[in-house]
C-alpha cells in the first residue's frame, strides 16, 4: 500500500538552508576523514568499500562457475568416458565430444573403459550455466574458479582437451578444487528405491545409453560450428 505523503511544514532553520547545509557538510566531512585515514594505510586494499581489482581480489565462493576443467581421479586417470552427456545438456551447444577406445597400452590413463578422443568447449558461446557439470555421470567436467578468460583471438577461446586438463592441474596445485558434493537428502519413502537404483548401476548400461546420446548432439554441434565459421 502506498504510504500517504505527509507534507511537513519546514521550520525557519530549514527554510534558510544554511544550517541544513552545515549539517550536510558535517556528514561528508565524517566520510572524508574516515576514508582519508583508511587510505593512508599500507596495502592495496585501503578504502574499505573499494576493491582495486588487479591487486585486490574478492574471495570467490567454492561453487563459483568459472572456466571448465576436466578432472582426473586420485590415481591421475582421466575421469571422462566420452559419453557426451555434457554436450547433450549444454544449452549453448558449445561442447564437442568424440568417444573412442584408449589406444593399446594406454588403458591405465583412463578411469573408464572408453575415453574422449576429442573434447572442446567453445568458451565464446558458453554461458557458464553449469549444466554440463550437473549432467556428467562421472563428475569429470567441472567449472573452476578462473574468470579472467579474455584472449586476443577467437580461436584461442576454444579450449581443447589439453587445456581443460591443464586447468585441472592448475586448480589442484592452487588448492582451488571444489569440495566434494554433499549427498542430496532423500525422503523416507524414496530411500529404498534409491538404494535399489544404486545397486543396479552397471557401467555397461550407461555406455549404451550414452552411445545414443552422443551421436545426435555431435551432429548438431558440427553443424553449429560450421555455420558459425561462415558467419565469421
Amino acid at each position: 500500500m502506498a504510504k500517504p505523503v505527509v507534507k511537513k511544514e519546514y521550520t525557519f532553520l530549514e527554510r534558510i538552508y544554511l544550517w541544513e547545509i552545515v549539517k550536510g557538510l558535517k556528514l561528508t566531512f565524517k566520510h572524508f576523514t574516515f576514508n582519508f585515514k583508511e587510505s593512508l594505510k599500507k596495502g592495496p586494499h585501503t578504502v574499505p568499500t573499494c576493491w582495486q581489482y588487479p591487486e585486490d581480489r574478492r574471495p570467490i565462493a567454492p561453487v563459483f562457475r568459472g572456466a571448465h576443467m576436466l578432472c582426473l581421479d586420485d590415481e591421475g586417470r582421466e575421469l571422462c568416458v566420452g559419453c557426451g552427456m555434457c554436450a547433450r545438456a549444454c544449452p549453448a551447444k558449445c561442447i564437442t565430444v568424440k568417444r573412442g577406445k584408449p589406444a593399446e597400452g594406454e588403458e591405465g590413463k583412463y578411469a573408464g573403459k572408453t575415453m574422449s578422443t576429442e573434447f572442446t568447449i567453445d568458451m565464446l558461446r558458453c554461458i557458464f550455466c553449469g549444466f554440463c557439470e550437473e549432467a556428467c555421470p562421472k563428475g569429470a567436467i567441472q567449472l573452476g574458479q578462473e574468470y579472467e578468460l579474455a584472449e586476443y583471438t577467437m580461436d584461442a577461446c576454444i579450449y581443447d582437451k589439453e587445456r581443460l586438463l591443464a586447468n585441472f592441474q592448475k586448480a589442484k596445485a592452487e588448492g582451488k578444487l571444489k569440495p566434494p558434493k554433499k549427498p542430496v537428502p532423500v525422503a523416507e519413502g524414496d530411500k529404498k528405491a534409491a538404494a535399489k537404483k544404486a545397486a543396479q548401476k552397471p557401467a555397461g548400461k550407461e555406455a549404451t545409453k550414452s552411445k545414443k546420446a552422443t551421436s545426435k548432439p555431435q551432429a548438431e554441434e558440427k553443424k553449429a560450428s560450421e555455420s558459425k565459421g561462415e558467419e565469421t
Partner: peptide
C-alpha cells in the same frame, strides 16, 4: 580525490 573520499571511493 576529495569527492571520491567523501563518497567512499578512491
Amino acid at each position: 580525490r576529495g569527492s571520491a573520499m567523501m563518497q567512499d571511493r578512491l
